[in-house]
Design a protein around this nucleic acid. Structure first.
Length: 423
RNA sequence: GGAGAGUUGUCCGAGAGGUCGAAGGUGCAGCACUCGAAAUGCUGUGUUCCCAAAAGGAACCUAGGGUUCGAAUCCCUAACUCUCCGCCA
């Protein structure tokens, strides 16, 4: 959520920033009028409440003095009704204002290049070159099916499209990748492992920005008004919602493995084969809570921490900075890490690392006590995949496939796999 | 799923229709005492909103409704926590 004061003081600046996303103004133009109206009604009702409070304090004194309070009480009854009426109006205005604000995305950071979509993303660096095969490489869904470690047909039988069954060494590979990533982040790096609930309430989904705008993308559990998490970002960021963290605790680094559930509404026909776009996939996530002044340095190090996974696995990748039009709703700046996928003949997103600045912190009310000023201030939140597990498995299968159809296990995973090759 | 108890400020805890933003303690900050520290004493110490700011005002005792001139206090609904029973990995 954007700061209403910022909109009030620098409307043109905020408008220009929001419009960098090339998708209109998201209702921002309604804000100044609603804000003015709110303050007008607020001033009026507060003045009435002031009179109500003052007179209410006088009544017991008058009664004690033995005076008749009937007339005053009657007048107060009228006032009370008027206040209720105005309070109702105020609540409506505030609801509309809040709904409008919740529907406005974050403003892109100054370094973000303007662009309508992913074609304007900028490549920043590359690790290794795409491998040249001496034979015709297969797609991971064929490799997995041929090795009998992935079963898409039976997954369709028990669930439907966009689900996968992992079998034998396939299941073990998925688990090995998860364990390898978590060990890297918690032992070699400084993240604290979290295993959160996979269902969350509406408040949590609103705190990180999935609601109210993107409800149709989520799986919903009506029985309890819960949502299946689309990413660990939701439970892990909201872990500290409504809290004031001691400054000394910052920065806070968390990592979490969770399954992720996405309805994939609106992506019918895209990436229908294989592990790339599923209703359920596993992911290891990195989340940071940091002091505002450090958040862009923290974004660099978080991205490096995610890249480390790919380096250890020896998978070719590149890092791009998303253009303003491709930026996620809550993000101020995002780096995508893209892994080379031979079957696609291009790089495919495997991690998305974002700085949300105070946008999520304001929604979820996550603050820290600034020791210098003594004031509670919003933290900056960041997160990134470290990494998407299914896509990592797909990339391993494709990049490490051999001419005989077998797949060599990357060195770093062998102690988790117990075998050097799947054949 | 059934029965009951609870949810107050950093934390603990009083409160039971008006003088309560809320006693007391604790934590924190400052001052005094001290060579220094501890102990002790004194003072201060929540958040948000409105107002250019100050002064001032409004709101907040889990959330949302209601009763009342007036609600932390009474009523209703919901969420959460705890205890007992049932069920269950």
């Amino acid at each position: 959520m954007l700061d209403i004061k910022r909109i009030r003081e620098d409307y043109e600046g905020v408008k220009a920033a929001v419009e960098k996303r090339c998708k209109g103004d998201f209702g921002l133009s309604k804000v100044p009028e609603l804000d003015a109206k709110r303050r007008e009604v607020l001033a009026e009702v507060e003045q009435m409440k002031n009179r109500q409070n003052t007179v209410s304090k006088e009544i017991p004194k008058l009664k004690k003095a033995g005076e008749d309070t009937t007339a005053i009480m009657a007048e107060m009854k009228t006032l009370s009704a008027e206040i209720k009426e105005l309070d109702g109006q105020l609540a409506e205005i505030e609801k509309e204002l809040k709904d409008t604000l919740l529907g406005i995305p974050n403003t892109p950071y100054k370094d973000v290049q303007i662009g309508e979509d992913d074609t304007q993303n900028v490549e920043l660096r590359k690790f290794e070159e795409p491998k040249e095969f001496t034979f015709e490489p297969k797609a991971h869904w064929d490799i997995g099916t041929d090795l009998d470690i992935l079963d898409f047909d039976r997954a369709a039988k028990i669930s439907g499209a966009r689900f996968t069954v992992y079998k034998g060494l396939g299941a073990r590979l998925e688990r090995a990748v998860i364990n390898f990533m978590l060990d890297l982040h918690t032992i070699d790096q400084d993240y604290v492992e979290i295993l959160p609930p996979f269902m969350v309430n509406r408040a949590a989904m609103t705190g990180t920005g999935q609601l109210p705008k993107f409800e149709e993308d989520m799986f919903y559990v009506p029985q309890k008004d819960f949502f299946l998490i689309p990413t660990a970002e939701v439970p892990v960021t909201n872990l500290r919602a409504q809290e004031i963290l001691p400054e000394a605790e910052l920065p806070v680094y968390y990592t979490a493995y969770t399954p992720c559930f996405r309805a994939e509404a609106g992506s019918a026909g895209r990436d229908t084969r294989g592990l790339i776009r599923q209703h359920q996939f596993q992911k290891v996530e990195l989340v940071k809570f940091v002091k505002p002044s450090t958040s862009y340095d923290e974004l660099e190090s978080l991205t490096n921490d995610a890249e480390e996974v790919l380096k250890c696995l020896g998978l070719p990748y590149r890092v791009v900075r998303l253009s303003s039009g491709d930026l996620g709703f809550s993000s101020a700046m995002t780096y995508d890490i893209e892994v080379w996928m031979p079957s696609y003949g291009r790089y495919v997103e495997i991690s998305s690392c974002s700085n949300f600045e105070d946008y999520q912190a304001r929604r979820a009310n996550i603050r820290y006590r600034n020791e210098e000023t003594g004031k509670a201030e919003f933290v900056h939140t960041l997160n990134g995949s470290g990494l998407a597990v299914g896509r990592t498995v797909a990339a391993i299968l494709e990049n490490y496939q051999q001419e005989d159809g077998s797949v060599v296990i990357p060195e770093a995973l062998r102690k988790y796999m117990g075998v050097d090759v799947i054949k």
